[in-house]
Amino acid sequence: MYYVIYAFSLPLSMAYWVSTLIFILVIYVVISILLYYLQDYFLFKPEKLPADFQFFYENQEVDEYTIETRDGAQLNGLHFKVEKPKGVVLYLKGNSKSIKGWGKFAVDFTRNGYDVVMMDYRGFGKSTGRRNQKALKRDLQVIYNKLREHVDEKHIILYGRSLGSGLATKIASVNNPRMLILDAPYYSLTKVTARYAPFMPLSLLIKYPLPTYKWLKYVQCPIHIIHGTDDKLIPYKTSVKLSKIKPKLTKLYTVIDGGHKNLNNFESYHKMLTEILHSTPKKVDLEGSSFKVIHNTKRKNA
């Protein structure tokens, strides 16, 4: 009798585990599908603006522009102007709101003598069109080309903030701007999202991998990275890692206690930004310096 019970209990136990594994697999597949189709909702937080919305910024001269792309999308943006500009900053914003709110940061560049051009990504503000990574890169190249028609590349600065840092890096990698400034950049968007879904195959699911680290390898202009040590969304160590990709061209600026969204509230950030905007690349003569001198602690008086 005992043998009979045992003979039937094993298959039942196996059936239970098989059904459990199938259930888990189904749940995993369902979550993967949801992540794929809903990732735009999680990655982008756009603010829509009516077509007749009027932009206004106190003590700033600004023109609104709209550019139509080859696929019929409308790209809406702002051009902040100064008298006798030293150059122009193409400011690529983060993943939320619209240039209505981001426009207030233009003053940090106009006060230093630079024009500023901002653009709303597809689906943000007044901009229209179907959004995907290829379209975003193509749109920004269109804007960059428009700038080159009026300004020599040696006077164009690319500034990428958070989401915009990867896109700014891509544009810098295939052009020759004066410099690239990255504010709270990510190694890749796949790495950022992996922190919140570590067990999902994000390399296969994510439609916006935005591999900053890959594109940074092809950048030939000076690279300036600004990051806060208290950034909870994109850790400071990310910028340390990025700074090692092109070390001879890169300078890392650290905002002590700075978070992800509040660097503009730190005096040190504004000092760094002013230094960057007014800097000119200088070749350092290492002749007669301690470069490559070995510090041998075994020698007396070493």
Rank of each mutant, 00 (worst) to 15 (best):
E83K: 03
E83A: 03
E83M: 04
K84I: 00
K84L: 04
K86Y: 01
K86C: 01
G87L: 05
G87A: 07
V89P: 10
V89G: 05
L90K: 13
L90T: 12
L90D: 10
L90H: 12
Y91W: 13
K93R: 13
K93L: 11
K93V: 13
G94E: 15
N95Q: 11
N95I: 00
S96N: 15
K97S: 15
K97W: 14
K97P: 02
K97H: 15
K97E: 15
S98A: 14
I99S: 02
I99E: 03
I99V: 13
K100G: 03
K100R: 14
G101L: 13
G101A: 10
W102N: 05
G103L: 10
G103S: 10
G103V: 09
K104W: 12
A106G: 14
A106E: 09
A106I: 11
A106T: 11
D108L: 15
F109A: 01
T110I: 00
T110N: 08
T110A: 04
N112R: 05
N112H: 06
N112L: 07
G113F: 00
G113L: 05
G113P: 04
G113T: 06
G113E: 04
Y114G: 03
V116Q: 09
V117K: 06
V117A: 00
V117F: 04
M118N: 02
M118W: 00
M119R: 05
D120W: 08
D120P: 04
Y121D: 12
Y121N: 12
Y121T: 08
Y121W: 14
Y121P: 11
G123Q: 11
G123P: 08
F124P: 06
F124L: 09
G125S: 10
G125K: 08
G125V: 09
K126F: 04
